[in-house]
Every structure is written in C-alpha cells, then in structure tokens.
C-alpha cells in the first residue's frame, strides 16, 4: 500500500540538518514504491540548494515556505507554514526530527490535525506489503523500549531521534524527477517576540547529532580539566558532553549534561572519561554503538557497559590518545 508522506526538512543557519535527511530516508521507506514523498522547507530568503538536495535524495515535491517571519523561530509562524503544507498535501504521515524545533512543532500540529504523535523514534519496522508499521522508541531513557503503532482513521505525526535511522542517499540523477513549488501560507499575528539568540555552543556540533562524544565526569576535577577532552573531541570531529556530577560541580554548563535528565545520545563512539557510571548517566548513553571508558577506579560501573575499558588516569591517557590519533591519521 503506497502512502503520501510529508517531511519537515529542518535546516539550521541555512544548512539542512542531517536528521532531515534521516527523516527523508524513513519517509521514502514508509511511502512505498508508488507512494509520494513531499518535503517542506521553511526559510527566509530562498532555499534552492536545500531543495535540490532533497530532490536528489528522494523527495518528489519540495514545498518552500519563504517568509521573513521564518527567520527566527516563532513557533506559530512555523506551525502556520507546516499547517499549510498539511492542508495542501493531506499526507498519511508527517515526519520531523526529534530536535528542539521538531519537539515543539510535532505535538501542536498533531493536536491541530487530530493526529496521533509517536515521539523519539529510534527504529521503524515496516513490512513490504505496507501492513502494520511498528515504531520502536525508548522508555525510561533507554532502560526499556516499546513498539508503538498508529490506530487507523487519522494522520500520523512522527518525530525521529537524530543519529538512529539511515539518512537518504543521493539517487541516480537521471532517474530523479521532482518539482519545487512555493508554499503560500498566511502568517498569523505572532505571539512570540524573539529578543536574542546567544550561541553558547559556538556553532559547535549538537551533542545529539554528533558521531563521536567525549564525555567528562567528576574525574576531570575542574573546568580546565575539560581541555584535554575538547582536544580529543576535536581530533575525532566530535562533541564534548558531561555527567551530572561534572555539571553539579560547576566544571561545565548543564547544556552538556548527558543522562536521564539532560540529553540522550547515541553516537557511533562514546568515550567516558572520569565518569563512574551512575544508572542515570548510563540511561543517557548506553545505546551508543561503541563505548570506551577511562577511569581510575577499576570497579566503576561504567566498565559494565564499556566495549573497551582503560583503568588509568584520564589526564595521562586522553592526551596520548589524541596524539596517537593524529599520528595514525598523518
């Protein structure tokens, strides 16, 4: 059974986010061979490159909502654009990334269109005949999982967790045909006044989307103690995270916290430095593909989930790791 799927193709600073391509890949799969995949781009001042990238990767129609009200994030402007796309396309399902933006838009659009919402999806089980589709998602921050399905009769709204589903790859250009169309929508009187946006992450990679996360706990002992971790993360093209212990101690910002409260990450490689591995922290990272633990305490619970464990002083091991990586690369 073929379906019509709409993807909210989120971009950040005019660049398509990888999770948008992951949602697009999932949409292509859910649509089936004869189904249609529509994507909606919200921008202020053109998005031709992003539209082309979406067409090349499997979108059949790209709707561009282009309006000054979409420059900063006033949720009601984005909801109006997304609502116009929903009304125009009448999709069976809307897919968004489970990002800061997607997490705000999905519930409101679901409620407005009398649709169900399955959030934070990490895997999709779809049979080829298009029958029952199961969405796998974590509970208790990954201490359990559930398989959830939609009941018939209403559209679906799905948010997919970054870094878990395969991204749509560019297809053979000769076989791709698609259209780009302007999406007219009425901007409502706005409630939200966006007064400022401070980039505290310095434009750094978002933790949830990073392929590599180097994380520090109480063992880093100070704010300066994070410097060798930052160097290792830079060498690996990754991001720096932290345990609650390190945040509580004031070594770093709560924005970096990984755990049951804080962020849940599933990178390809997670390197835990000086983190003992409290159950709340494990909940935030135990689904990472490969886990490395570096800790002085040989009995630390973090070693229980680590694929590779090093009992040692992080201030000795981490810089050596960084230089070894640089040596191997050159």
């Amino acid at each position: 059974m073929s379906k019509t799927i709409l993807v909210f193709a989120e971009s950040r600073d005019g660049v398509l986010r990888r999770v948008a391509l992951e949602a697009l890949g999932a949409a292509r799969r859910l649509a089936g061979k004869d189904g249609a995949v529509h994507a909606v781009l919200a921008c202020s001042g053109g998005a031709a490159e992003e539209a082309a990238a979406l067409l090349a990767r499997g979108a059949d129609v790209v709707h561009i909502a282009d309006d000054p009200s979409l420059r900063a994030f006033a949720p009601e402007a984005y909801i109006a654009a997304l609502g116009a796309a929903m009304a125009a396309v009448r999709p069976d399902a809307l897919l968004l990334g489970h990002t800061s933006m997607g997490r705000e838009l999905a519930p409101r659009v679901a409620a407005a269109f009398r649709a169900g919402h399955i959030a934070d999806v990490t895997a999709i089980e779809a049979s080829d005949d298009g029958g029952d589709v199961g969405f796998i998602r974590p509970l208790y921050a990954g201490k359990a999982f559930e398989r959830r399905s939609f009941l018939p009769g209403h559209p679906w709204v799905i948010t997919v967790r970054p870094n878990n589903l395969p991204a749509a790859e560019p297809e053979d250009a000769a076989e791709r045909t698609g259209t780009v169309t302007a999406l007219p929508f009425t901007v409502p009187p706005l409630y939200t006044a966006v007064r400022s946006l401070v980039r505290r992450t310095g434009g750094q990679l978002d933790l949830a989307e990073a392929d590599v996360v180097v994380s520090g706990g109480r063992g880093v002992r100070s704010a300066a103690g994070f410097e060798p971790l930052q160097a290792l993360a830079s060498a690996l093209g990754g991001a720096v995270g932290a345990s609650r212990g390190a945040c509580d101690a004031g070594y770093c910002d709560y924005a970096l916290q990984i755990g049951q409260t804080g962020k849940v990450v599933t990178p390809q490689l997670y390197i835990a430095c000086g983190i003992s591995g409290a159950i709340q922290h494990l909940a935030g990272m135990s689904q990472s593909r490969v886990i490395v633990a570096i800790n002085k305490d040989a009995d630390a619970p973090i070693f229980g989930v680590a694929d590779y464990g090093i009992v040692g002083d992080l201030f000795e091991v981490v810089p050596l790791l960084t230089s070894e990586l640089q040596r191997v690369r050159s």
């Binding site: 009398r114 359990a144 999982f145 559930e146 398989r147 959830r148 090093i310 050596l320």
Partner: peptide
C-alpha cells in the same frame, strides 16, 4: 491515536575488553 504493541528490554551488550599496560600502550 496510537497503541503500544510490545514492551522490550534494551538490546544486550557484549562483555567488554580491558586494555592492559601503561598509558602509552593503552592509548
């Protein structure tokens, strides 16, 4: 609009390896 069809434990992880030696060898 939605229904849980299954509750699952997290996928198990294989036992890890400890890397022995001095810091340079470990790295």
């Amino acid at each position: 609009r939605t229904v849980r069809t299954q509750l699952l434990p997290p996928p198990p992880r294989a036992a890890g390896k400890r890397i022995a030696g001095g810091p340079a060898e470990q790295a």
